[in-house]
Amino acid sequence: MANKAFSLTTQAGASIAPGIELTGAAAKFWRAYRPTIRGTYTFILILVVWEIVGRYVLTSRLMFAPVSAVAEEFVKLWASGGLQQDMLVSFTALFFGFLIAAAVGITMGSFIAVSDAASEHFDPIINALYATPLIALAPILILVFGIGPASKVAIVCLLAVFPILINTKAGIRSADESLIEAARSFGANGFEIFRLVLIPSALPFIVAGFRLGIGKGLIAVFIGELFGAREGLGYLILLSSQSFNIPGMFVGVIILAGTGVLLVALFEFLEKKIAPWRQFELKA
């Protein structure tokens, strides 16, 4: 009997923690948004722990700052207008670098995927470069392009281009042979097959490449602003840490992290949206 009663309550309500039972609308809400609610719990918990540690454990403001101090610093920087300027500078570099990386990556990736000669010529060097920590080349690019936006765009592009290129190539190569043949049976020429079959079937892979590329692009912006820059989020982080303004450093880090989370989520959403027919393998 006890068992039966238990199963009835789990059907009607929801147990969110031992001893806490929800019923009716609250239970429904819990079931629909459980992952979000739990994720938010953890997030809030981290903020609380951060605040406690900042106030009572690592009390030296030269080493650490509670989250409330970070929020205060955010408001201050925002009010001064400097934060918006830093964000604008960093995001502009990210945007243009990524745009070029996408154009180059998709073009080169397609070319290598459809041409055996191109593939044999370029595969070894691409694989070598993909495995290299290219960020090490950042100082050279800064020497070549100067400390302005051009060098940051170049670094973003260099880092983001390989995941996009490699995923484009993999996507086109993995296009189903029968889908290509079906198009051929209608007399489609090479370009039509490329445009109407290869690109659409590679699209989820290309977007997955964007998702991987954006993470690298954010690292690139940060690194690009560590050398000689006079503005941008990377510069904000560097300057703040050098002047022991720990809250200011966290403001920069959190904005970069938040941007990454948002953009990755956006691309993940797009991946699912454009290819609802498949749960494709994520290529890391």
Binding site: L179, A182, V197, A275
Partner: peptide, 28 residues
């Protein structure tokens, strides 16, 4: 070479998954 004088119905499910019924039929 293939042309519109012959239509091929494939054994394998070779419909383009990103095209609707209408889009698939309109391809040729």
């Amino acid at each position: 070479r293939p042309d519109h004088k012959r239509g091929f119905v494939f054994q394998k499910d070779s419909l383009w998954p990103w095209r609707t019924t209408m889009g698939n039929v309109m391809f040729g």
